[in-house]
């Protein structure tokens, strides 16, 4: 409570530090084991996390950057307007993003508004985040992916000669690769000889955005792909800068995961 004549409560530096560490540690300990870990907090990862958390799944999103949202803040050519082809605008209605109709079947929204609303919507649903956290490896057990190994992002910037910071592991039932064209988790499995990844196809081939959604799903036991990771995983052509495919791919992967988990427990 604020003292008379002071705007803010009299809290010392040590109390602030304790609050940060305790709160972080409490959440971190809780999420050492979760239902689902999504690697990548771009539009498809956020959408997937939101829909999974809304269904009561304990969901953690790992993001290597400080900021969340990936490329969703801006559209093509660094312009901060993002476009959606029908029926993607229904997702905007769902999360409360205003948009304008550019032409029949094409809608445009402010990138900052759309991205911040999606992040907020994921947070409201109960998704927790580990940002500034680098995906380092997968936890493999019984021929299935059952977790991820992570480290602080800045560790990569440090020369190996002066430091060696070991990563730590987080266990989960499902891992989602939402790392965009990098497809980092899928490529990690490839490096272990468990998958063969062809790389994304030519950008010069026009392709239906539906292809990303149609190929969204489980690629290895315990590992699902969504968003642009799908194009790299299956070697299908890259899409242009519209975001409906990303949002609907995120929704599709959430539906597929929920179905998969229901099947596992025999419901």
């Amino acid at each position: 409570m604020a003292q008379k004549g002071r705007l803010f409560a009299p809290v010392g530096e040590k109390e602030i530090t304790r609050a940060i560490v305790n709160s972080f540690a409490k959440q971190f300990v809780e999420y050492v084991e979760s239902d689902c870990i999504i690697v990548g907090a771009g539009p498809s990862g956020l959408m997937a996390g939101r829909d999974l958390a809304r269904q009561g799944l304990k969901t953690l999103i790992v993001e290597r950057n400080n900021y969340l949202g990936g490329g969703f803040w801006i559209g093509g050519y660094l312009l901060n307007k993002v476009t959606f082809r029908a029926p993607g605008e229904k997702v905007l209605d769902e999360i409360g993003v205003p948009y304008e109709k550019a032409q029949e079947g094409l809608f445009v929204a402010d990138g900052p508004h759309a991205c911040s609303k999606l992040i907020a919507s994921a947070c409201d649903a109960g998704v927790k985040f580990a940002n500034m956290t680098l995906f380092d490896d997968v936890v493999l057990r019984d021929n299935s992916v059952q977790g991820v190994v992570v480290n602080w992002t800045p560790v990569r910037a440090l020369p190996r000669e002066i430091t060696c910071v070991d990563p730590i592991a987080l266990e989960t039932k499902i891992v989602v690769d939402a790392t965009g064209h990098d497809a980092l988790v899928v490529k990690m499995l490839e490096s272990k000889g468990l998958l063969k990844v062809p790389g994304h196809g030519s950008m010069w081939v026009e392709a239906s955005e539906d292809l990303v959604v149609e190929h969204t799903g489980e690629v290895y036991p315990g590992l699902f792909v969504c968003g642009m990771s799908v194009t790299t995983t299956y070697g299908i052509p890259r899409m242009g800068p519209t975001f409906s495919g990303m949002l609907l791919s995120g929704k599709r992967v959430a539906e597929t995961i929920l179905e998969s988990l229901r099947n596992k427990v025999g419901c």
Partner: peptide, 27 residues
């Protein structure tokens, strides 16, 4: 010698009798 992913086979299976709905773009 490379086996296709199950999702690729499933994708083809879904459109075998409904070509008008098949998304294009894969050569």
């Amino acid at each position: 010698s490379v086996e296709p992913f199950p999702a690729e086979v499933a994708f083809e299976g879904r459109f075998l009798t409904s070509p008008g709905k098949k998304p294009y773009g894969i050569p």
